[in-house]
Amino acid sequence: NLFVALYDFVASGDNTLSITKGEKLRVLGYNHNGEWCEAQTKNGQGWVPSNYITPVN
């Protein structure tokens, strides 16, 4: 599942992941309501807002 970041997101805690607009990432899963997804980039792994990313076509 390859996705791309639509916006910059700055991590606010130990379990969140900073991403940069245009960065590619893999989604590993979603939380119970789908608002957050666990993602992996070359810089690490953590939670990002699911509305900040979109699938790569």
Results as ranks from 00 to 15, higher is better:
N1D: 07
N1M: 02
L2Y: 05
L2S: 07
L2P: 02
L2H: 02
F3D: 03
F3K: 06
F3M: 04
V4A: 07
A5F: 04
A5T: 03
A5Q: 00
L6R: 12
L6Y: 02
L6V: 11
Y7C: 11
D8Q: 09
D8W: 01
F9I: 10
F9Q: 07
F9C: 11
F9Y: 10
V10H: 15
V10S: 10
V10G: 09
A11Q: 08
A11I: 02
A11S: 05
S12N: 11
S12E: 14
S12A: 14
S12F: 03
D14G: 08
D14T: 12
N15R: 12
N15P: 04
N15Q: 13
N15A: 14
T16I: 04
T16Q: 15
T16K: 10
T16Y: 03
L17A: 10
L17Y: 14
S18V: 06
S18D: 11
I19Q: 00
T20I: 15
T20Q: 15
K21N: 12
K21I: 00
K21T: 05
G22A: 05
K24R: 12
K24G: 08
K24A: 02
K24I: 06
K24E: 13
L25V: 12
L25Q: 00
L25R: 01
R26E: 14
R26M: 14
R26V: 09
R26A: 14
V27F: 01
V27L: 10
L28I: 08
L28C: 11
G29L: 08
G29H: 07
G29K: 13
Y30K: 07
Y30G: 11
Y30L: 08
N31Q: 09
N31F: 03
H32M: 15
H32A: 14
H32G: 14
N33L: 06
N33T: 15
G34V: 06
G34C: 07
G34S: 11
G34R: 15
G34D: 12
G34I: 03
G34A: 13
E35C: 06
E35R: 09
E35Y: 02
W36Q: 06
W36V: 05
W36Y: 15
W36N: 04
C37R: 03
E38W: 03
E38G: 03
E38H: 09
A39I: 06
Q40Y: 15
Q40N: 12
T41W: 05
T41R: 05
T41I: 04
T41F: 06
T41E: 00
K42R: 13
K42F: 05
K42H: 05
K42C: 10
K42N: 06
N43A: 13
N43C: 04
N43K: 14
N43T: 08
G44M: 05
G44S: 10
G44N: 08
Q45N: 04
Q45F: 11
G46W: 05
G46A: 10
G46Q: 02
G46M: 06
G46Y: 05
W47L: 13
W47H: 03
W47A: 06
V48E: 00
V48D: 02
P49Y: 01
P49A: 02
P49E: 02
S50W: 09
S50K: 15
Y52H: 07
Y52R: 11
T54S: 12
T54V: 14
P55V: 11
P55C: 10
P55E: 10
V56S: 11
V56E: 14
V56A: 06
